[in-house]
Each structure stands twice: as C-alpha cells, then as structure tokens.
Design a protein around this nucleic acid. Structure first.
Lengths: 223, 223
DNA sequence: AGTGAGTCATGCGTATTCTGATCGTGGAAG
DNA sequence: CTTCCACGATCAGAATACGCATGACTCACT
C-alpha cells in the first residue's frame, strides 16, 4: 500500500509516517501543497493524507485540482478545524474522509485502512501464500513446507512484495521504490545482494526454486 | 449484530436504523434516555448508539450508569458538540467512540463496525494464558510455571497487552497508545526500559524465553 | 523527608544493511 | 562451436542503526 503524506509540520508527518510504515505501508512525504500536488499526480498512490493549512497551496485546493483532473485516489483530510462547515468543505472539495486534530494514531490508522480497503480489498490480507510458501504478516513469520524460515526486516519486505506480485515479473525499479523507498538509482547492487540472501533461505534448502531471474527485466516468484 | 439506537429525533433515528438494517444488523430504538437505559439493561445488545441531548435523561449520564453497573457494551456517542472538551466528556463518561453531527452515513457505519469488531469475547475473560505463563486480571497476579511473579502496574498492563496479542508482532506505536495512552512518539526509550524490566522478571529466571524482539518491527510474545 | 514507581539519558554491544571487489554464467556474434 | 561481453551472483568487511542495560532523576504518596 503506497501512501502519500502532505503535511507541513515535519514532526507530525514523521510520526504518522513511522506508524504507517510499521503497519507495512510504503510512505512518501511532501511538505507543502505544490509539492504534494506534483507527487500525487505522477505517484500512483493508494491513499493520500492531506493537511488543510499548508504553505504555497492549501490542502483543499490541492484535492479539488486532483479531482478536476479525474484523479480518484482516496483522500483523508487532516485539520485542526472541526466545525460542521469545515468538515463539509473538506468533503465537498473531494476528500473521502475528514479527521480533526488531535486524533488517536489508531483512529488515523483505522481510517486509512478503511479507505485502502475501499480501493483494494486484497491489500489488507494478513496471510499470503504462493505454492508451499506462506507468510503471516501479523506474526511476521514465513514458512515453506514444514520449515519455518527466519528473515531480516528488509528480506521480509522484499519477499512480501514478491509474493504480492507472484507470477509477475518485478523490475528493479519497482523494488527500489516499494521496498527501499528509493526514488533514484543508487548505482549499487543492493537488490542483488538481498535477492541472493533471500534465495539462500527460501530456495537453497529445498528441492525446487521459486525465485527466478528474468535477465534484463527483473525477478519473478512462482512455483 | 444487535444494535440499539437511542435518539429523540425520530427522523434521524429512522435513517440510521434503515441504513444499519440494510447492512444486515438487527436494530432496536429508544427515544429518550430512560427508555434507552431500560432497554440497554436487559437487551444484550452488541453496540449502543446514543445521542447526547435527549429528554428525561441525557445520553452521557445514561452511559455512566451502565458502566457503573458493569455493562461493557461498546457505545458510540452522537452529538452536535464537537469541541475537544465535549469529545473528552463523551469518552470519560464511558463512550467508546464519539461522532460529531453532521456525519456521513458511511462514517457511522464504519465506526459501528469498528466497535463491533472490538467487542471480542477475549475482552471479558479474567484469565489469560500463553504457554506456562498465566495472568489473572481480577486478582492481578501472574504465574509462570510454579513461580508467582510480582509486577508493577505498568509492567502488568504491558504484559496484558502482549498476552492478548500473543503470537503477533506488537509495534511500539501500538504499545505507546494502548499501554501508555500516548498518542504521539515521546522520542524516548520508555518502552525499551519496561520491556527490559519485564524480561528480567518473566524470562531471565526461566529456561526458555517467551518475549522476543522483532528488529525493526516490535515485540512478540510466544512460547 | 523518605520511599518507591516510572521516566529519561547515556554508552555499549551487536544485528542488519550496504558497499565494492571478484567470480560465474547466459546469450549473441563470429 | 567457441569466444567475448555484459549482466547477475556471491562474499567479506565496513558502516550504520537499533535495542539493551544501567544509573540518575522526577514525581506522587506517606
């Protein structure tokens, strides 16, 4: 689940981001309305979290513009303004939900999940399986056949992404963005290294390999 | 799912009721605080939706009374008053959630679902056990194997939360919110310290450890 | 004032990740 | 069929981030 936080207060943005990352989402941030608008336009996010009052462009006008452009990404509007009129304004500008500060982190999380579910019911499942490989997102455990497999955090994210796209070729660029949060090419072989380590855990000890290299394109997980 | 709506405005009550019935719930109604109280007492409802301002008895005092009588049915408070203090009042009276009018029907539905989900049979149990570790919530005692273990209040809450989520990874954010009631990141290592103390009591003196660190994610209690 | 619980700050040790170099291998061209 | 090249795999060491323990401090309650 890719989430964009548009919030000028960096501390608040950081807190929200941290929490959402803990629940397994990939989080990007913008710190004013113009940047947010630009990122939302080409970002392909699943949910936007947008503050109302921000420098350069306020949150509501940003949302209005996106909607005029036909963008239907669910938006959660954050605001200190909780009056009826304010809430109505937030919703008519095209927001899907409106949360008044201060709010409980769990409330925010619940709303984001609700919005995300509306868009893609699959995305919130807590168990993934491909062939005899199973992953439990809540317990953070991985099992292949009868064997429990111990994974590092990054390996876990990597495998999760591969499993969510099982059977498809996953490019390096996709991995860099969704697993590493890099939006540029780090010119190193980080990916190769982690793929290698993942293989040594999920493929090496077993009869058949599931993680295949597709030369010139990327990798594919399948049984 | 049985739901009781306590709301004096019959039109509003009707609308809410209609919507909830459409989502497959069984809905009862009361139109003032006294009737609502009576029905809630013997009704065995799964969720109560209660308006604040009503004839004969206001919603908050109705909830307070139910709570004093030991009734733990989840309550969603509806109100036109949306100031922070009003929300706080609603929650301290024993409400589980607070929704300010006007609200989107879908928002109401989402909240009701959330409350219903929260009400799990686990919450009413007075004994928890994981492996050879047992906790008695009423007596406030903890035993591992044959050994009685003395815990501080905060340690007790921490362990309780971990036991209720045994086998799952519990994030720091979850702990801050549910055990400390912090709704922000205090930027300190309070959690680490208490986990450390808890370990010295429930793990150190024994052969096997139950409280595992999941780097980058949180902690998991399991045997 | 004294006690005890809870919180905060620091420094340490180590797990995890990244880097850069080297080695291996598939596929196209000759 | 062989050779060469580019891409990917692997390895080991370095850098980093993370979690842990300890002791000092604050606050509330006696």
């Amino acid at each position: 689940m890719r989430i964009l936080i548009v919030e000028d207060d960096r501390e608040v943005a950081g807190n929200i981001g941290k929490m959402l990352r803990e629940s397994g989402h990939v989080v990007d941030m913008a710190h004013d309305g113009e940047d947010g608008l630009a990122m939302a336009r080409d970002g392909a996010f699943d949910v936007l979290i947008v503050d109302r009052m921000m420098p350069r462009r306020d949150g509501l006008s940003m949302v209005s513009i996106l909607r005029e452009e036909g963008d239907k990404t669910p938006v959660l509007v954050l605001s200190a303004l909780g009056e009826v009129d304010d809430r109505v304004a937030g919703l008519t500008a095209g927001g899907d939900d409106y949360l008044v500060k201060p709010y409980a982190p769990s409330e925010l999380k619940a709303r984001v999940d609700a919005l995300a579910r509306r868009r893609d019911p699959e995305a919130l499942k807590t168990r993934l399986s491909v062939g005899d490989l199973e992953m439990d997102l809540l317990a953070r455990t991985v099992v292949r056949g009868e064997e429990a497999i111990q994974l590092q955090p990054r390996e876990f994210r990597l495998l999760e992404f591969l499993m969510r796209h099982a059977g498809q070729v996953v490019t390096r660029t996709m991995l860099l963005e969704k697993v590493w949060d890099y939006h540029f090419d780090p010119q190193t072989n980080v990916i190769d290294v982690h793929i290698s380590r993942l293989r040594s855990k999920i493929d090496k000890p077993f009869e058949t390999s599931m993680l295949h290299t597709v030369r010139g394109a990327g990798y594919r997980l399948s049984d």
